[in-house]
Simulated assay, not measured.
Amino acid sequence: MSLPKVAVVILNWNGKKYLHDFLPSVMASTYPNMEVVVGDNASTDGSVEFLKENYPTISILTNDQNYGFTGGYNRILNRVEADYYVLLNSDIEVVPGWIEPVVKLMESDDLIAAAAPKIKSFRQKTHFEHAGAAGGFIDKFGYPFCEGRIFFDIEEDKGQYEVSKEVFWGSGAALFIKKKYWDECLGFDERFFAHMEEIDLCWRLKNMGLKVMYCAESEVYHVGGGTLDTESPFKTYLNFRNNLVLLKKNLPFSRALIIIPIRMCFDLMALLRFISEKKYKNAWAVSKAHQNFIRRLFTKNITSVKSRHRNYNLKGMYNRSIVLDFFIRKKTHFIDLDPKDFL
Rank of each mutant, 00 (worst) to 15 (best):
S232W: 08
I328W: 12
C146P: 00
S90L: 11
D109G: 00
Y181V: 09
D91L: 11
L238A: 13
F176E: 13
K118V: 14
K118R: 13
N311V: 06
I328L: 15
V80T: 10
K118H: 07
K235T: 00
K315T: 14
I177D: 09
V80A: 04
E184S: 10
K331W: 10
E162R: 02
S232Q: 05
I177M: 01
N239G: 08
D83E: 15
K5P: 08
M269A: 11
A131K: 00
P32E: 14
P233C: 00
P24L: 04
A114V: 08
L11Q: 10
L247P: 07
L268K: 03
I322G: 06
L337M: 07
Y143P: 00
G148W: 05
K249G: 10
I199W: 00
E231S: 15
H127F: 13
G172A: 10
F168A: 11
E129V: 03
V323G: 04
K279W: 08
P261R: 00
Q124K: 12
S121W: 12
R191P: 03
G97R: 04
I138A: 01
V8G: 03
A173Q: 12
N250L: 01
R295H: 13
F188L: 01
N66M: 06
G209V: 11
V86Y: 11
K281V: 02
Y73H: 13
A116G: 15
